[in-house]
């Protein structure tokens, strides 16, 4: 009798395997609930977390030009609940429905370091950081942030900072509310947007007047476009009229056109020693006397920009900005 039961179970198992298995569902209630899930696996975003292989309803994407994060490789995913759609908003941010999530995993030296999630709940967006364990099996919620001793991309020791929940908002805050920084249509490939629309996850493919160039093509791209793209992605989440650096009057968004707001001939306001004894944020033709470049080239607290998320220099970003300022007509 027991044997028969075992045989039936085996048979049942065989039948289930031969049919197409339904995709494992994302645990929507973890995204929309009021709790903070303690481990990343609770969401069900990944088939294989260690391999960062998402379930079919979680869509990977890349940005044309990404934020520099101490040389970490970043794997980005968006989850849109079944039966719902993102809405295109012109050039800018895709409007993601309640229940959506943005997932970003940071990888350095071949190891997963942290995964940050942005959850769209009914009361607004919530940003949570998860830090991977040594065995790469699970990532745990780390509300208070953490510093991790790592080797940087240049092999030098790096004190990698996982942001705390509040620091998430410093970058992801618009007028005091947590808001995703991306993805913005002007920093996404047209083909990816088209595919998302075809899959029924986006209401329409937005028209984009001017796209940020692909970062790997920057040396062939117009210097101003490459640098402005870099500044948008790396700086404008704070340096915009509603961001954490709104009081600086320095606004570095892709769509900004006022030269003073972009720092050209603009004096600093609350820079302290971040001014580096220099008078202007950007001096056309003279990156060495431009505060903007000086602060990118520093690693010191109180001087280095961005204030968060950078413990190593970004030589490529510095070169792009140096070229832009250097070629600017005096």
């Amino acid at each position: 009798m027991r044997l028969l039961a075992a045989a039936l179970l085996l048979l049942g198992g065989a039948v289930a395997v031969s049919a197409t298995p339904p995709p494992p569902p994302v645990h929507d209630w973890k995204i929309t609930g009021s709790e903070y899930p303690q481990v990343l696996s609770e969401y069900g975003f990944f088939v294989s977390a260690a391999g960062q292989i998402p379930v079919p309803t979680v869509t990977p994407y890349r940005l044309n030009t990404p934020l520099w994060s101490d040389g970490a490789e970043k794997l980005r995913f968006v989850y849109i609940p079944v039966g719902q759609q993102a809405k295109a908003q012109g050039d800018g941010l895709l409007d993601l429905p309640v229940g959506a999530a943005l997932i970003k995993t940071f990888k350095l030296g071949g190891k997963l370091i942290e995964t940050r999630v942005l959850l769209h709940r009914a009361e607004g967006w919530v940003a949570l950081p998860y830090v991977w364990d040594a065995g790469q099996h699970e990532a745990r919620l780390t509300l208070g942030g953490k510093r991790i001793a790592l080797a940087g991309p240049d092999g030098k020791p790096l004190s990698y900072a996982v942001p705390n929940k509040n620091q998430c908002k410093e970058c992801h805050g618009v007028s005091g509310a947590v808001t995703p920084i991306g993805p913005k249509a002007y920093n996404l490939a047209p083909a990816w947007l088209a595919a998302l629309q075809k899959a029924g996850k986006l209401d329409r493919v937005p028209t984009v007047a001017k796209r940020i160039p692909l970062w790997e093509h920057r040396t062939h791209a117009d210097a101003a476009l490459a640098a402005r793209g870099y500044l948008d992605v790396n700086c404008a989440h704070c340096h915009n009229p509603n961001g954490a650096a709104s009081n600086s009057g320095l606004y570095l968004g892709w769509l900004e056109s006022d030269p003073i707001k972009l720092g050209i001939g603009k004096r600093p306001v609350a820079a302290g020693r971040g001014s580096g004894n220099l008078e202007f944020d950007v001096v056309p033709g003279d990156p060495a006397h431009s505060i903007l470049y000086y602060r990118m080239a520093s690693l010191e607290g109180g001087i280095a920009m961005p204030e968060l998320g950078r413990a190593a220099l970004d030589p490529d970003g510095m070169a792009a900005v140096q070229k832009w300022i250097g070629e600017m007509r005096r």
């Binding site: 510093r147 004190s159 900072a161 509040n166 620091q167 908002k169 410093e170 805050g173 005091g176 954490a244 607290g301 109180g302 280095a304 204030e307 968060l308 413990a311």
Partner: peptide
Amino acid sequence: GQQGAGEGLLVT
């Protein structure tokens, strides 16, 4: 021994 951030305490 501060390593990062633009201030000691930020209130928003």
